[in-house]
Design a protein around this nucleic acid. Structure first.
Lengths: 348, 348
DNA sequence: CTGTTAGCGCGTTCAT
DNA sequence: ATGAACGCGCTAACAG
């Protein structure tokens, strides 16, 4: 029942007028103080701020917005919130954004249809000051629509359109994975590529395919197209893809998967086929999913939460009008060797 | 205030007044029609609705709220958005809520500190019509704070305080897991319990411990307390706990873990110790995490996304003022036997 | 059934 | 540096 000593505040309704009166200033001055605007004596501002905090006052975003101010809201547009990668990204973004006093609106856009609807509806109502697009390609018309409404946009966990972005270099990550296999002496390396749900057959992360091609080319290995399989994202698909790889006349001695989840599926297929990892077949993924550590999967680590945090800070800077914000950040990735990769059979 | 350079003077922004005029009715009537209120001729309502849709008009939540209406926003208070369980729950909630035209605000409260702050400041105050608390125990003092917001509250993925809830029965799930082990002839069954981060040493899901105790008791097995280990949630902790279990004079022949993630960690320890699963040790988890299937982990399935969907519908009903909404829903769980459990050693 | 009117809480010109 | 007044877009009484 009894709360903390000094933190007693339950007036459900408390308006700017209240704190203005309590501070002995006018509404306008109180407003300016809270908004960090020009033309307020430092001492006055401080007094208002103190009173406001003491009274546990928060401006009503609704009223603020209506009066022409900012909404203090940011929309996160995310394709698959149930996947670890996006959860982690959202976690980082939310942390920074809410610390800055911004509210986070979550919009889950699964397929292209959801997306079209989102971009059609959101701008019309000016519900937010900014939009963070998570690893989602944004079309040109969608971009214009948003731009027109004057909302700031940032891409996190991937690059899209011409927005400021925070990402990793997928091609580099792919090369780190494949080069590792190459170094171990593998020459017959399969790739299980994760497809874009909206564009089956095409990798959703093209860089992760390009890195594979580049690595093979650099090693002077001619591509065997039968070794490349593109499937839906997810473990089950990975398992199926691996089965196809194993049924080849000459199966690969190593497999590179676009993601750890896919790699895990492949591992199950390999083991069920009675083959050993890494003695018979090596496998490497990308992401460094927390479970990768638990299954001893060799993978390429990418800093996911940090991408979210960085994107949030970038956005905050943009919103603040800073002129020196770096609008193109690529975070580093690195190989994490574990127990699913070893020298090619008969080569040690 | 600091917008993009060019101030667009072409805001396709239209108001209720516009659609009222276009429909040849008054503001009030238009409002009533849009809000599905009583006392509007069906024909009039239809006309207004048609015009509104045709003009791609959406009411401004800000103005609506300010004028005393609903915000059409719901807050999701979630502890660990990066974990699969919560992502899935959020996904289900978001889907239903946004389908009903509600916006979703995300409040991530990680540790006890976040939580204290959340409940102290109630950032969601006056911003939402309802809040959904995700698998988060709400204390009495916190409950009072929440109540202060004067909004509808629902608990999803767990029960908390006296709010309407959707959950599974953790004790039943635990019994399904442990009974399975018992049926296989195991008598020495260890438990790796996942602790509440805020209250180390105590299981965050007490029912999952109680089910274990109940199952053993029902089987007439006296509890060996050394077989129960409580660790932080997560795979690494599971691995550590398993190591302790293995170092016992007489290690268990089977292990029941509070979650699949924990079970995965335990599996790694078992395998690294040179023991075979399930020949030497059986292991079972709870959740049916998508990766459980990929590692052939026996577990108890719980419908996570469905809990989110159900909670959302419950909330919608409450908001709508329905009188016949079921405010206490417990969804069923079931055992999914896979390859990590087998008859007790020397008993087949 | 429908129209009129009065704010909701705040940012913003204008004044001073 | 500060204050007074206006209006953002909408819902909620009240009339009619």
């Amino acid at each position: 029942m009894s709360d903390q000593p000094p933190r007693m505040s339950d007036p459900p309704q408390m308006s700017l007028a209240d704190i203005a009166k309590a501070s002995g200033v006018s509404l306008a001055t109180a407003s300016r103080a809270l908004n960090d605007a020009y033309g307020v004596a430092a001492s006055t501002r401080q007094r208002v701020l103190d009173i406001a905090r003491q009274l546990d006052y928060v401006v009503s975003p609704d009223a603020a917005r209506l009066a022409g101010g900012a909404t203090r809201r940011v929309a996160l547009v995310v394709p698959h919130i149930e996947r670890w990668f996006f959860g982690e990204l959202v976690s980082g973004l939310e942390h920074e954004l809410s610390a800055a006093g911004l509210d986070v609106l979550l919009y889950h856009v699964g397929d292209a249809e959801d997306r079209a609807e989102f971009f059609a509806e959101l701008p019309a109502r000016r519900k937010v000051d900014a939009v963070v697009v998570l690893a989602l390609p944004v079309g040109e018309s969608e971009r214009l629509r948003l731009e027109l409404m004057g909302v700031t946009i940032v891409a996190a966990g991937g690059q899209s359109a011409a927005y400021p972005y925070v990402r990793i270099d997928d091609e580099v990550a792919a090369r780190q994975a494949v080069d590792h296999l190459l170094r171990l002496g593998h020459t017959r390396i399969g790739m299980i590529s994760a497809a874009d749900p909206d564009q089956p057959g095409w990798p959703s992360l093209p860089g992760r395919s390009q890195g594979y091609y580049a690595a093979l080319a650099a090693a002077g290995i001619t591509l065997d197209e039968r070794l490349v399989i593109t499937v839906d994202w997810g473990g089950t698909s990975g398992a199926d893809a691996m089965a196809r790889l194993l049924s080849l006349p000459t199966p690969p001695t190593a497999v590179y998967a676009h993601s750890d989840e896919v790699a895990l599926g492949a591992m199950r297929t390999i083991r069920r086929a009675g083959l050993r990892i890494p003695e018979d077949i090596s496998i490497v993924g990308i992401d460094d999913h927390p479970l990768a550590d638990l299954v001893d999967l060799t993978t390429v680590h990418q800093p996911v939460r940090e991408q979210g945090i960085t994107a949030a800070r970038m956005l905050l800077g943009l919103l603040r009008g800073d002129t020196d914000v770096d609008q193109a950040v690529t975070l580093p990735t690195y190989l994490v060797p574990r127990r699913t990769t070893a020298a090619a059979p008969g080569r040690l």
